[in-house]
Design a protein around this nucleic acid. Structure first.
Lengths: 204, 204
DNA sequence: TGATTTCATGAACGTTGTTCAGTAATCTGG
DNA sequence: CCAGATTACTGAACAACGTTCATGAAATCA
């Protein structure tokens, strides 16, 4: 009988409604300043209802992040799919990574700029699932670097350490601009370009 | 009469006692997990007493950060004072910057990895004073790069944009390692070295 | 000594995330 | 169509948080 399915569908709908409301609030006001009560008020349910769908606040934001990082992977895949020269692909991927952070500051900060200690009692499962997503993007960086190396655009070496270094540097550009604590940066687009120039010149 | 002085001295002592206790706790447990009540308990005073010396929790941590960044400047000056070849000086400064973050994770995260939105009602004065400290360190980077350029170790160009890029990349290494959310990094010392290699090669 | 300034406090307020007993609605088997 | 079981949801409550403020104690000043 279809009643089961309708019920689970309704449940999924509410789940999505919670995620959407929370997403909008997190983006607008930042993780710290969004309370479970505010989210509940927005969807016109009692705060305790949220806990029927998510273990806690961290689990809630973790699920949002998973969605966001899936989008990042899509963006990267779309670049890789264009089969440009490997060095060009690498540059576009790094640029897209930075852009992703700028487009989703709340999620980027949550995943990469918040120490694990801030969620002392974080659930291991949700932590792992978010980490898994980030891993997916990192794997793409690894193969992109490998391709550059095989094409001779980058001198041969340890791909893993090179990938980690490259990520650290790109993460610096991203987080530095995302956090943006009032430092008088030069024009953003130019700063990103010159920083990526620096990275790519260092690689080759 | 010396009573005035004794009183202000006692006041300063308590202020320092608060700062020391708060410092220890912030380092151990991170900003979020340290409550004013915990700090008060540690120094055996009532929580409200802290507010006689600091406007609020943000003001408290801001004052701690100022102390930490003064130390960073000292470290950098000690390197610059050795008058090594400019490129060597630059490398040591960047390395020291990373080390500073690793030595003071709580402060580094607070200043560079926490969005301004997290302190919506931050006092403008304490914000400025912390920012001013960070500016001091940045100025040292600027002149160090300038020296490299004048020595011909770096092709001539816009020092300001180069300094900003260099800071972003170095910040990436620092924050990536400081946050450390369980990513399986390779051996830390080697990763730092290779990342700095990348930066310096990109510069020259 | 009496008046004043300084220092410190405990109780209170309004939040926060989270839990849980209890209610209302819905579905199921007879 | 009705009793019973399952599900969905809620409101009140808890402990902890940052912060404020009237009150009291203690030291200083006149």
């Amino acid at each position: 009988m279809g009643t089961q399915e309708r019920r689970t569908r309704a449940k999924d709908q509410l789940r999505k409604k919670i995620l959407d409301a929370a997403t909008a609030l997190f983006v607008d006001e930042g993780y710290e300043h969004v309370s479970m009560r505010k989210i509940a008020e927005r969807i016109e349910y009692a705060p305790s209802t949220i806990y029927l769908h998510f273990r806690d606040k961290v689990d809630l934001v973790a699920n949002i992040c998973i969605g966001a990082f899936t989008e990042l992977d899509r963006r990267l895949d779309s670049i890789i799919g264009r089969r440009l020269p490997p060095m060009e692909t690498l540059r576009l991927c790094l640029r897209q990574y930075v852009q992703f952070g700028l487009d989703h500051p709340a999620y980027y900060i949550f995943v990469f700029c918040t120490p694990a200690s801030a969620f002392k009692d974080i659930d291991a499962a949700s932590f792992e699932s978010v980490n898994g997503c980030a891993m997916g993007s990192f794997q793409r960086l690894r193969t992109s670097l490998q391709a550059c190396m095989e094409a001779g655009a980058i001198p041969p070496g340890d791909v893993e350490s090179l990938a980690q270094s490259t990520w650290l540097l790109t993460h610096g550009v991203t987080s530095g601009l995302v956090i943006d604590n009032g430092f008088p940066f030069i024009e953003r687009e130019r700063l990103i370009d010159e920083s990526l120039d620096l990275i790519l010149r260092g690689l080759s």
